[in-house]
Each structure stands twice: as C-alpha cells, then as structure tokens.
Computed example of a mutant assay.
Amino acid sequence: MSEAKTVFESMVGRFDADEADDMEAVFQFDLDDADSYHLSILDGKCDMGEGEHDDPTVTLSMDLETLKDVMSGELDGMAAFMQGKIRADGDIMLATKLTQIFPM
C-alpha cells in the first residue's frame, strides 16, 4: 500500500464527527509526489476516494511530506500555507478546519 494511502486511511480513522457538525464537504488532495485522494464528509461520515473528485469543495495541493507534517501537528497548516507549501483552491476557510476534523 502506498504511503499516501496510509496517511489518508489514518485521517479517516481519526475523523471527529462532532467537529464536522453537519458538514457536507469534499476535500481534494492533489499531492505533487503521490496519487491524488479525496475525503468526502456527509451525514457525519467520512469516506476516502482515490483520484480526482468531480466537484470538490476545496482542493489542497502539496507534497506528501507537508501533508504528513501538518496532520501530525509538526507543522502548522496556516504557516505552511503562508510559506507556499500548501496551495488551496475553493473554500479556503474549510481548509483551516482540517486539523479539528481529523485531530491527532
């Protein structure tokens, strides 16, 4: 199994339905050095999909290392965005909630 897939599966496992609070959203992750994945949140559930979603709410582009650092808490997501390590398109405010929805 790919390292990227492992990261996304662990995110799904850490999904906090209370934090998602009736959210309907699709997070598209375009990784520079790995396959793309998306996480769909609907009705208090989170599902992972491989590849491109046809209508993501927000698209986040970065390399796999940046994703791992942000999701492990080693790197602040907003700092990574300001440094240009993460590029976001769509509902950027939604992206700021990523570490709340998928806590460590």
Rank of each mutant, 00 (worst) to 15 (best):
T6I: 06
V7P: 03
V7N: 05
V7D: 08
F8V: 03
F8I: 07
F8E: 00
M11F: 05
M11Y: 05
V12L: 08
G13V: 07
R14T: 05
D16T: 15
D16H: 13
D16L: 13
A17N: 04
D18R: 14
E19Q: 15
E19A: 15
E19S: 15
A20W: 01
M23G: 13
E24W: 08
E24N: 12
V26R: 00
V26K: 02
V26T: 11
F27M: 07
F27S: 03
F27K: 06
Q28P: 04
F29L: 12
F29K: 02
D30W: 01
D32L: 09
D32G: 06
D33A: 09
D33P: 04
A34S: 13
D35N: 13
D35A: 14
D35H: 06
S36Y: 04
S36N: 14
Y37V: 04
Y37Q: 06
H38A: 10
L39N: 01
S40C: 09
S40K: 12
L42P: 05
L42Y: 14
G44K: 09
K45L: 13
K45C: 07
D47W: 05
D47K: 11
D47G: 11
M48D: 03
M48G: 02
M48A: 10
M48V: 11
G49V: 09
E50D: 15
D54S: 12
D54F: 13
D55G: 11
D55N: 11
P56Y: 05
P56N: 08
V58R: 05
S61K: 07
M62P: 00
E65M: 11
T66G: 07
T66A: 10
T66H: 07
L67Y: 01
L67E: 01
D69N: 14
M71E: 00
M71A: 03
S72A: 12
G73M: 03
E74R: 10
L75E: 06
L75V: 03
D76S: 11
D76R: 09
G77K: 01
F81C: 10
M82P: 06
M82I: 12
G84T: 09
K85V: 08
I86F: 02
R87N: 15
A88W: 02
D89T: 09
D89V: 07
G90T: 05
